[in-house]
Design a protein around this nucleic acid. Structure first.
Lengths: 343, 343
DNA sequence: CGACGGGCTGTTAACGATACCAATCAGAAG
DNA sequence: CTTCTGATTGGTATCGTTAACAGCCCGTCG
């Protein structure tokens, strides 16, 4: 009797069959009250708990009530908010959540996904790293549902929930333009990431819509860390004819850029999370809602798990430009004006 | 052939027995190279993946390679950092991580723990909420290992990894005293949480060691949110004979307090994470290392899982007081002086 | 009085994998 | 030619639970 007690142990202790114990443990009808009481007493006495591993095996084809979440790194505030909302959604539906961090490494992503699917997760919520995700096809064929969140996965035809990255940066640049800026710098992350591409595209679209030439000297892409962003800012501003405004393409870069930015330069950052302690002067940001992203992804995922077979959808959530001052510093070309055509 | 293929399917496809497939899939020796190649081809062709659920059942008594982490809320930066480090540690040891948030609710904590242990997690890393954890005894008796992190669990005899909360706040108050402050306010969280109790104890110990009377009017306990902390600060400073320095007992309160604090009042906050965008003026903080906490907890947990039966240990990690300016604002009693006896 | 129905309980056989042991076969040794 | 060894491979039982079905008992109805 060393290990954990089984239904047979309980059955023996209560003088019934394992089947009856199963019925009592699962609250099924059709057990005499007296018998149920005896079984419950035995359960408590032995400290019995149903073994969901065996249960899941026997009920193959049913759901495992486990879902997996794969993010870059849970330690990032944005990803942590996603994880928290995903866990909430899972729990509400009676599932538990496995979590893994890819750390931007495709190999690691594959490993974690394999470990998850081997445990028969009902579905995966995925923040895909760069690169093809063709390798997911077999898992999908075996029945694992997949939803991408925050980024689209190139070469994978799945439900996807993202924010309007393109529009967000386009609007931010337009905002700066409306405040009189013409030379607007841009700090972007790794261009092979889908979000970074979209955001950069938004930057260029706004410039071209405003009739401003896209000047490569004002753009730094492929930045990864805060210090890299700080360095990039310093170089941008040291160049001849420097930008009068800067946009940072993600929260890490925003945070790093701020530390190197003189107070006269206008600034808009992406993401509102890393800045809860409202630095002074306050920073204008493009805010996204990670909890809404995760909730949307979970909604789509559970719909699939429960049999939805409609064609994959892409849900695009809005962002919000929150003016707090740093983005409203007037530029040299008639700044301080209102937005051109508000939306 | 609708569902996922099994070893039998692969065996049939490769013209061998299930046993041989098992050996190939698990990389065991003693299979002829030609046979192994045939099996591997069949595996790829059918998209077979080993079912770890069935595997775990058959190998009962072995490890499930799943561990569970229960935190207040993964969205908090501190907890997110703990989760990230825990996931790293688990992965390094070939395990996956289930995560759950208790949201400070004992009922929810129990539910999540039950869901985890029913899936036969090898162990739990627990940030215990307030209240008794006696209910964990049966799970421990069934073999689930438990390690507490960040907080001790009252009434539970387990390994525990915490920081020196008492000493941290004591030193912070001593630091303020050394800079000439005598009236030092304190903002504390819910006193039923172990950490909050320890920190408040540290506050009082420092005052009493310095021969300063503990004045209840300078202390606000039971605060939960940033706005509550901001409000508390405002009231403290509006009172007659207000404090010249304030200590905040956790990161949420620190962040809230800062938003309401005039620049002349000295300030030390707990925890360095919510303030990555270095507010100006920079804030002196008591920094803890959540990754080290989680790594320590994982180390103890896996030692238990692998058979360590020595008596439970409590590991206390140090904190670091990082002077950044706000805590060095001189007070009215000969401020600016050095620490009395540095340590 | 016998059959019948409903409430309760038990029996058997899986789910998919693996531990354990037995069988087969080639070539070597005697 | 027989026996033996070692390398390969297969058969069987089993992990803990539950689906499906079979039985039992008692009261009731024709």
């Amino acid at each position: 009797m060393a290990g954990r007690p089984t239904m047979r142990d309980v059955a023996a202790a209560a003088g019934v069959s394992a089947m009856t114990v199963s019925r009592v443990v699962n609250g099924e009808a059709g057990v005499a009250p007296g018998t149920a009481a005896r079984v419950e007493a035995a359960v408590r006495r032995l400290g019995y708990q149903r073994d969901d591993v065996a249960r899941q095996l026997r009920r193959a084809g049913q759901l495992s009530q486990i879902i997996g979440l794969l993010v870059d790194d849970v330690a990032e505030p944005f990803m942590a908010a996603v994880a928290s909302a995903a866990e909430d959604a899972a729990r509400q539906r009676g599932s538990v959540l496995l979590i893994g961090s890819s750390h931007d490494d495709p190999g690691r992503e594959r490993e974690v996904i394999a470990a998850f699917t081997a445990r028969r997760v009902d579905g995966l919520i995925l923040v895909p790293v760069a690169g093809s995700h063709r390798f997911l096809r077999p898992a999908q064929a075996r029945g694992t549902k997949v939803v991408c969140v925050d980024r689209a996965a190139p070469g994978l035809d799945t439900d996807t929930v993202v924010v309007d990255n393109f529009g967000a940066v386009r609007d931010a640049v337009r905002h700066l333009h409306a405040h009189g800026h013409r030379r607007i710098g841009y700090l972007g992350g790794r261009p092979e990431l889908w979000t970074c591409g979209e955001r950069h595209r938004g930057y260029r679209a706004a410039l071209s819509a405003a009739g401003v030439a896209d000047e490569p000297a004002l753009v730094r892409l492929g930045l990864r860390t805060g210090p890299e962003a700080a360095d990039a800012v310093t170089r941008l501003l040291a160049a001849p004819d420097p930008p009068t405004a800067v946009v940072a393409g993600n929260e890490v870069l925003a945070s790093g850029a701020l530390s190197a930015l003189p107070s006269g330069v206008a600034f808009v950052g992406f993401d509102d999370l890393a800045l809860p302690a409202r630095p002074r002067p306050p920073v204008t940001v493009i805010a996204q809602d990670p909890a809404a992203l995760a909730a949307g992804a979970a909604r789509l995922l559970f719909a699939r798990i429960h049999g939805d077979t409609s064609p994959p959808r892409t849900v695009v959530l809005p962002t919000r430009l929150i003016p707090r001052g740093s983005g409203e510093i007037p530029g040299p070309h008639g700044g301080g004006g209102a937005e051109p055509a508000s939306e």
